[in-house]
Amino acid sequence: MDTLPKDVVLSVQDISISYLAHRGRTQAVNRVSFDLRKGETLALIGESGCGKSTLSLGIIRLLPKTGQIDQGKILYASRGGEVINLLDLNNRQLRDFRWAECAMVFQAALNSLNPVIRVRDMVYDTARAHGRTDREATRKRMLELFRRVRLDPDRVFNAYPHELSGGMRQRVLLAMGVLLDPQVVILDEPTTAVDILTQRTILEVLKELRESMGFSIVFISHDLSIAAEMADTVATMYAGEIVEIGPVNEVFYRARHAYTFGLLEAVPTLSSGAQDLISIPGSPPDLIEPPTGCKFHPRCPLATPRCAREVPPLVEEAPGHKVACFESAQVLAQSQRLAESQHSPAGL
């Protein structure tokens, strides 16, 4: 019987996920581990294709047919304190688990809604699938949630998806995500396709919901500023691996992995103009035949011959701050300089 520390609600332990492709097996997620505590918001950041979406689909066991979980455990502590390994669940149990315990809000808001049926039918479908046959109660709760995400409840409830704007749809998804009061909500790039004002609204209603309902969040983003605003913990993923994980301030102000640092440098800030934007040279690695040693080494400005030879282990270098980089000391020095420059007036 697996056990979890008292405040941990979700624990991903040594998970590997691969896809079967024509050329061979793609290692999309490689031995990833992390814990999510109650009420915690974990941001998974990284370039597209780094495996963060695969990881989230793996957690709710919704990988496409070509994908499979090769090893590891995903432990989940139910409200009753029972710890279950999600990989042991059968289809029926999985269906019950999804949404009621762990909801997921997908990236493309328009495409996540069935275009040919009304919002209310999707709501009723969801409720009925979890045994909540009292339509009136469902309706009342949904209208209340819509109100809380600042939507016109009656109109939205009876609307077809195409009758709603992008921002409205995203809020509909958020509200529907918490309909069944889940412990964990996975948000996959919830603000990607919306304008900056809508983005603010969404982040605000999300914070309000989190505050009032107390669920934990796995927040997937490539937008570091949003991650910084929302997250308690930040994990950087590169080529299917978590290369750095730690408390938000630790990671952002004292980054110890060259890749995380590269991402931070690439963030346009108010103080640095767009012309200063540094993107990381090179492209994400081939996951079928990944580079030897540290997978980031071909793109890393600090790489040494050792990086190409040995795989750096993930070690805890500061309290709660783990990193897999042989040159973490150098990176730390650079990131501290960066942090200072951004905070000093000289940066203007």
Binding site: L57, I60, L62, L94, R95, D96, F97, R98, W99, A100, A103, M104, F106, S112, L113, N114, M122, D125, T126, A129, H130, M176
Partner: peptide, 8 residues
């Protein structure tokens, strides 16, 4: 996928 995620 979203519908499956909702446990339908």
């Amino acid at each position: 996928t979203a519908a499956h995620a909702r446990g339908l």
